[in-house]
Amino acid sequence: NQASVVANQLIPISTALTLVMMRSEVVTPVGIPAEDIPRLVSMTVNRAVPLGTTLMPDMVKGYA
């Protein structure tokens, strides 16, 4: 089972991601792979991401 990136807090729309905002967790459905966390830092989300939500590729500008 692959770990995915999960929001560690509410991430408001257009917020630049930082390490403290994300954690890795094995979830269903599978989202962005946890090993991509370093790549996600400073990318922005294009929607509000509630606490505990799995980050999907279409939620992060420039990721997909």
Rank of each mutant, 00 (worst) to 15 (best):
A3K: 11
A3L: 11
S4L: 02
S4V: 01
S4D: 01
V5K: 02
V6G: 00
A7W: 03
A7L: 03
A7H: 01
N8M: 06
N8W: 04
Q9T: 10
Q9V: 09
L10N: 14
I11E: 00
I11V: 06
I11H: 01
P12W: 04
P12R: 08
P12E: 11
I13V: 12
I13C: 06
I13H: 13
I13A: 15
S14C: 07
S14V: 05
S14H: 15
S14F: 14
T15G: 05
T15S: 13
A16L: 09
L17R: 00
L17A: 00
T18M: 07
T18F: 03
L19D: 06
L19G: 08
V20Y: 11
V20Q: 15
V20P: 13
M21V: 03
M21F: 03
M22R: 00
M22P: 00
M22K: 00
M22Q: 00
M22D: 01
R23N: 07
S24Q: 10
S24A: 14
S24Y: 06
E25K: 14
E25R: 12
E25Q: 15
V27A: 06
V27W: 03
V27M: 05
V27P: 00
P29W: 04
V30T: 11
G31V: 02
I32M: 02
I32L: 05
I32E: 00
I32G: 01
P33S: 08
P33C: 06
A34Q: 06
A34N: 05
E35D: 13
I37W: 03
I37Y: 02
R39D: 07
L40A: 00
V41Y: 04
V41N: 03
V41P: 01
V41L: 12
S42C: 05
S42M: 09
T44Y: 14
T44Q: 11
T44D: 04
T44C: 07
T44F: 14
V45M: 07
V45C: 05
V45Q: 01
V45T: 13
V45R: 00
N46M: 13
N46R: 11
R47I: 12
R47V: 14
R47Y: 08
A48M: 15
A48F: 13
V49F: 03
V49T: 04
V49R: 00
P50S: 10
P50D: 15
L51N: 14
L51H: 14
L51E: 15
L51A: 15
G52A: 06
G52N: 13
T53P: 00
T54R: 03
T54F: 03
T54L: 04
L55E: 01
L55V: 07
M56W: 05
M56V: 07
M56R: 08
P57A: 15
D58R: 09
D58K: 07
D58Q: 11
M59W: 12
V60M: 04
V60P: 00
V60L: 08
V60T: 00
K61D: 14
G62Y: 10
G62P: 05
G62D: 14
Y63M: 04
Y63L: 06
A64R: 04
